[in-house]
């Protein structure tokens, strides 16, 4: 797919806006405005991940870059107060954004978005499993201690 970097940039920007809209309005000024990654870790993670994803989806489609960026974001949203559907909704928002910016998405892009969505499902489940596993591990350690 040949989309110029500038367009990918615009797509990323709009995509970020939409995703941030899933957070309470009170937090927007911080999430959007603060540029220091340590004062605004969540906003930073969202921006970074989505920018990478937009560029990859509209460009090279490098598997490992996508996996890393997606993981960082899904990992965050998996522990925030979202239902699973809301946690992953941001992926499907990309379709609307692309329509807004470049018109109807080409077939290839549709496929890529679907691919990414499936990947995100896996990652989300992996995160939730990991959380369950970590819980169990802590509980087990505690039981062991108590038994000692």
């Amino acid at each position: 797919m040949s989309v110029s970097g500038a367009i990918a940039e615009i797509v990323a920007e709009r995509w970020i806006e939409r995703t941030l809209a899933s957070y309470p309005a009170e937090a927007h000024a911080l999430l959007c405005g603060e540029t220091d990654p340590f004062r605004n870790p969540a906003g930073h993670a969202i921006k970074q991940s989505l920018t990478t994803l937009a560029h990859e989806l509209l460009g090279e489609m490098e598997e490992s870059a996508i996996a890393t960026a997606l993981d960082a974001l899904v990992r965050l949203r998996a522990v925030q107060d979202f239902r699973p559907s809301d946690a992953l909704r941001f992926i499907f928002d990309l379709r609307d954004v692309v329509v807004e910016v470049i018109g109807a998405p080409p077939q290839a892009l549709e496929i890529r978005i679907d691919e990414m969505a499936l990947m995100a499902f896996d990652q989300y489940m992996a995160c939730r499993d990991q959380i369950a596993g970590l819980r169990e591990k802590e509980l087990r350690l505690r039981m062991q201690c108590a038994a000692k």
């Binding site: 309005a25 009170e26 937090a27 927007h28 000024a29 911080l30």
Partner: peptide, 8 residues
Amino acid sequence: FRDPALRY
């Protein structure tokens, strides 16, 4: 007025 958090 501007910052939603402060308005809250």
